[in-house]
Structure formats: structure tokens, C-alpha cells
């Protein structure tokens, strides 16, 4: 187990190294940053001095090493557009995106799994058919459309929920949360639903397909023949066997939710990283784009690592293979 974690950690570091290389390359391809930083009346000497000061005259590998070193400590330089530390901007924006992503992931998980189990068990029930049809809509309607429809119904027509923003927030040291105020929670409902709907339908359909598969197996038949209760058979034996693929997909989806909350954040004017990233692209704000790239890659790598470790918790067959490899090796 430990050897496995170490191996995966090394792989993660390699992945991050290549992502950093890509992010670094962006700086080189998008022209001279000095031109974008200074005014027209700046003299050539002053420009040269700035280049030296910024380290742009150092050899490339030195610059890259500096970039990686800074990134590792969370420093991504200064935003061209805002003339502020990128790390500060991310620190302000990240809680909003993470709260939105995690709430919508939890929503899709805690609604999607039970719906998947239900439709798997009662394949021909009318409620299952309703779920399956509704999930088709969820999977095929684009996110922005659902968001706009929700805004139209609940914000414009009914006036129950705010149409944009995050509501009131509470400062918890470095973390600015919207989860502790009524207006913050109200503001969260529609974006979280919009962002989570696709994942919900995906998880529901996945759990259903896996349940149908598992319910046909001999060990489920044998579990019934042993007289176990329905509850023990369906949830203890069947559902647990569907978990490995569900964990995989949920993990990957959580990464995508964080990375691609952009559209939802734009529709609801959610003050998260996605909105910041979109503005950065419009203004060719390379430091922010590079920081965003590295951060999202980091989330994906971290989530994948956690997912891999969860496999070990769920499936004893994997545990033993490693133990065996050790015993013989």
C-alpha cells in the first residue's frame, strides 16, 4: 500500500512537471510581457532594465526553475491586467468555486446514487421510467440553457431566488464562505443545481447500469438463497459492487466540475475562478491563465490519487495483489 502511494505520488509529480512546462511555455509564445506592462513612452533602456529585473534575460532553464519554485509555493507572479499578485486573486476567488463545485458534486452524488439504485431495482416501475426520461433531458440540455431557464422561473417570475452573485459572505480567516448566511445559501441553490444536474444524470445512469449488471451475478442469487434481507442484498452486496466505477467517474467529474464551472459561473455571475479565468483569456493575462492551468491540473491529480486509494478501501482483491507482490518480491 505504501509503495503504491509512493509510486503514484512520483507519477503525480511527473504530471505536474509537464503541466508546469506547458504553462511556462505560454509565457514564451504570447509575446514580450514587457510590452504589455509598460507604456509607449518608456525608453528602450528602461525596458531593458525591467527585463533584467523580471529575470527575462536569464537562461530559459533558470527562468523555468524559478517559475516552478514559485508555483510550488503558490506564487504565480503579478496579473498583467490587475497589477496584483495572482496568488491573492486566486485566494479570494477559490472558495467560491470550491464551495459551488463541492456542493453540486454532493448534490449529484446523494441524489444520483439513490435514483440509480431505485431505477436498477425497479426497472419496469413507472417512477423509473420518469427518472430515465427526465435524465435524458438533463443529459442533453446545455448547462447555460438550464441556468437561464432557472433564472427566468425562480428569479424573474417567482422572485424566490437571487439571479446572480453569491449573497452575503462570512470571512473565516483565509476562507470566505457563503454557506453560513441565508442569502448565501439561497444564492447557491440554482448554480449548484445547474452545475450538478449533468453529473447527477450521469451518476444515476451509471449506477443503474452497474446495478443491473451486478444483480444478475451468482453471488447476488446466492445471497438471496442464503435468506439475507432485501436491504442487505441490495445495498450491502449489490451496491458495494457497483462502487468502483462510480468512484472513478465521480472523481473525474469532480475535477471537471471545478475546471468547467466557467459556464455556470458566467451565467450566474458567480465570483469564482471560472469567471476570473474567462476575463484573463479575453485580456491575454498569462500569469492568471498559467496559474489556473497548474491549479486545475493539481486538482485532477489530487482527486485521481484519492480515487485510486479509495479503490483499495473498496476492493480487497487489489489490496492482496500488492501484498502478494511484496511477499514474493
Amino acid at each position: 500500500m505504501l509503495a503504491f502511494i509512493v509510486r503514484r505520488l512520483i507519477q503525480s509529480v511527473v504530471v505536474m512537471f509537464f503541466v508546469a512546462m506547458l504553462a511556462f511555455a505560454m509565457f514564451r509564445f504570447v509575446g514580450d510581457p514587457v510590452h504589455q506592462m509598460v507604456g509607449i513612452e518608456t525608453s528602450l533602456e528602461e525596458r531593458e532594465a525591467l527585463r533584467v529585473k523580471l529575470g527575462l534575460r536569464d537562461p530559459i532553464y533558470v527562468q523555468f526553475a524559478r517559475f516552478v519554485g514559485n508555483a510550488a509555493t503558490g506564487e504565480f507572479g503579478i496579473s498583467y491586467q490587475h497589477q496584483r499578485l495572482v496568488s491573492d486573486m486566486i485566494r479570494e476567488r477559490m472558495p467560491a468555486t470550491l464551495e459551488l463545485s463541492i456542493i453540486s458534486a454532493l448534490f449529484s452524488l446523494f441524489v444520483g446514487v439513490p435514483m440509480g439504485v431505485y431505477t436498477g431495482l425497479h426497472r419496469h416501475g413507472w417512477l423509473s421510467k420518469v427518472f430515465m426520461t427526465a435524465s435524458l433531458i438533463g443529459i442533453s440540455l446545455p448547462t447555460f440553457l438550464i441556468g437561464i431557464l432557472l433564472i427566468f422561473v425562480f428569479a424573474v417570475l417567482l422572485g424566490w431566488l437571487p439571479s446572480f452573485g453569491r449573497g452575503e459572505v462570512v470571512e473565516l480567516g483565509f476562507w470566505r464562505t457563503g454557506l453560513l448566511t441565508v442569502s448565501g445559501l439561497k444564492a447557491l441553490i440554482m448554480p449548484a443545481f445547474t452545475l450538478g444536474l449533468f453529473q447527477l444524470t450521469l451518476i444515476m445512469r451509471l449506477v443503474r447500469a452497474e446495478m443491473l449488471e451486478v444483480l444478475r451475478t451468482d453471488y447476488i442469487k446466492f445471497a438471496r438463497a442464503r435468506g439475507l434481507t432485501n436491504r442487505a442484498v441490495n445495498f450491502g452486496h449489490a451496491l458495494k459492487n457497483t462502487l468502483v466505477p462510480v468512484i472513478t467517474i465521480t472523481g473525474l467529474q469532480l475535477g471537471s466540475i471545478i475546471a468547467f464551472a466557467i459556464i455556470t459561473e458566467t451565467v450566474f455571475q458567480w465570483p469564482g475562478m471560472g469567471l476570473m479565468f474567462l476575463q484573463a483569456i479575453q485580456n491575454v493575462d498569462i500569469p492568471i491563465m498559467a496559474a489556473y492551468l497548474i491549479m486545475i491540473a493539481f486538482f485532477f491529480v489530487a482527486i485521481n490519487l484519492i480515487v485510486d486509494m479509495l479503490y483499495y478501501v473498496v476492493d480487497p482483491r487489489l489490496r492482496v495483489d500488492v501484498a502478494k507482490a511484496h511477499g514474493h518480491g
Partner: peptide, 14 residues
């Protein structure tokens, strides 16, 4: 009680 054909698949692997 019941015993089925294939012992390899009669037991829950988890």
C-alpha cells in the same frame, strides 16, 4: 439451503 454451480462466482468478492 442452496449450493450453486460455480463456487468462483457464488461468493461476493468484496
Amino acid at each position: 439451503g442452496a449450493i450453486f454451480q460455480d463456487p468462483l462466482t457464488s461468493l461476493n468478492p468484496l
